[in-house]
């Protein structure tokens, strides 16, 4: 154990959020654990202009998938218990990004790896609003358009770039 661990709560510069792992973003550009859901945006395999908004609720594990214009995903049947390929891609990419344990904890399910997580998510199709998630995705993208400011940010000394978890 690091000898400094005893004073962790008294330290100013500690890592609170576990690191996010790099992953390919083309298929699932946006994944988040927020608002009591695992939610994100999945690219359409056929149409570059179309994306699907997919989400899985914590606890009930009910799922939803529709286009950003709220058209239902053809891969889901009404009241059915099977997830479409977008939802499965969302789970896989969330596991890559956050690790299975963190995704499982957020969804309130016991699972240590991705396959186990997938099989334990036994919800049914229940439509959730897509617009809110899509606008969160747009807000996420907007960070890349923020104009640079030359002002130094002394507050970033509280946020060191941590190394890989070893």
């Amino acid at each position: 154990m690091d000898s400094g661990e005893a004073g962790w709560e008294e330290r100013s510069a500690v890592r609170v959020t576990p690191p996010v792992q790099p992953r390919k973003l083309a298929k699932v550009p946006f994944v988040e654990l927020a608002e009591g859901r695992l939610q994100g945006v999945v690219s359409s395999g056929s149409d570059v202009a179309r994306v699907y908004v997919s989400s899985i609720a914590a606890e009930t594990h009910d799922f939803s998938c529709s286009t950003n214009n709220n058209r239902p995903c053809g891969g889901l049947t009404a009241g059915g218990g099977r997830r479409c390929k977008h939802l499965n891609a969302l789970i896989d990419e969330a596991v890559r990004q956050y690790g299975a344990e963190r995704v499982a904890r957020h969804l309130k399910v016991e699972a240590e790896e991705g396959d186990e997580l997938r099989s334990r998510l036994q919800g049914v199709h229940r439509k959730a609003p897509a617009a809110e998630v899509f606008s969160r995705f747009l807000r996420h993208l907007a960070y890349l358009e923020v104009p640079a400011s030359p002002e130094p940010l002394p507050e970033m000394h509280w946020f060191p770039a941590w190394g890989a978890v070893r």
Binding site: V20, P22, L141, Y143, P152
Partner: peptide, 15 residues
């Protein structure tokens, strides 16, 4: 110092 806004999936040498 120079800084940029980013998102959490941009990490490592990509920054």
């Amino acid at each position: 110092a120079v800084a940029a806004a980013k998102v959490d999936t941009i990490v490592g040498p990509l920054v």
